[in-house]
Amino acid sequence: MYKFIITIELKEGAREKILARAPAVQAATRAQAGCLAYDFFTCTDDPDRLVFVEAWVDEAAHEIHMAQAYTRDFIAFHTPFHRALTFERIIPVA
């Protein structure tokens, strides 16, 4: 399994713009072969911090996702609103 967390620190005022587009991307992503989970959250202590949690059957499935036009378009849309982005690959402990 290929699982990771992406945390995006947004510039002030960008949250609603990104969240308006996120549900369509979420639905398309969840429909993709190899997607096990694709969820996004806002942090209770900082509403300008978004957290995306993704799980894929393998890294190859995620690479196919990254090649999709809707994925590239969404990333291009929200990147200018970032203050910071952290990508963390996670694996089960036991």
Rank of each mutant, 00 (worst) to 15 (best):
H78P: 03
P80T: 06
E16K: 10
D46T: 03
F74M: 11
Q68E: 13
F87Q: 02
Q26I: 10
C35T: 05
F77G: 05
M1K: 11
A37G: 04
F41A: 07
A69Y: 14
A61H: 01
H82N: 13
F52L: 09
E88K: 15
V53D: 01
P80H: 01
A84R: 15
L36T: 08
M66G: 15
F77T: 01
C35D: 00
C35F: 02
R30Q: 02
H62F: 10
L19A: 11
F74S: 10
H65N: 01
P80S: 04
R83N: 02
H78D: 01
E9F: 07
I6L: 08
T29M: 08
W56G: 05
A28D: 11
T71L: 11
C35N: 12
A14V: 03
T42H: 06
A94F: 10
A22L: 12
L85V: 13
E54S: 06
P47S: 15
H82V: 11
A84G: 04
Q32W: 04
K3Q: 14
R21H: 04
T86N: 13
A37S: 12
P23G: 09
K11V: 04
R72F: 12
D58P: 00
I18Y: 00
A84W: 13
R30L: 07
T86M: 14
P23E: 03
T7C: 15
E12L: 15
A55H: 06
R30T: 02
T71H: 05
A20E: 11
T79L: 13
P80Y: 03
G34T: 00
K3C: 09
R21D: 00
L50I: 00
E88V: 13
T86Q: 15
D73K: 00
F41E: 01
A22H: 09
E88A: 10
A22N: 05
R49S: 11
E12D: 15
R83W: 08
V53H: 05
E9L: 08
M66L: 15
D58V: 01
P92Q: 01
I75S: 10
I75G: 07
L50V: 02
A31P: 07
T44P: 07
P23H: 02
I8G: 14
F40I: 05
R89P: 03
H82E: 13
C35M: 05
E54P: 02
A28W: 04
D48Y: 01
F77M: 05
F4H: 03
D39N: 04
T42A: 13
V51N: 03
Y38E: 07
L10D: 07
D46E: 10
I5M: 12
A28M: 14
P80G: 07
I6V: 06
T42K: 14
V53S: 10
D39E: 06
L19D: 09
A84T: 14
P92E: 08
Y38A: 04
H78W: 11
P92S: 04
Y38Q: 00
A60E: 12
A76R: 09
D73N: 02
A61C: 03
A28L: 12
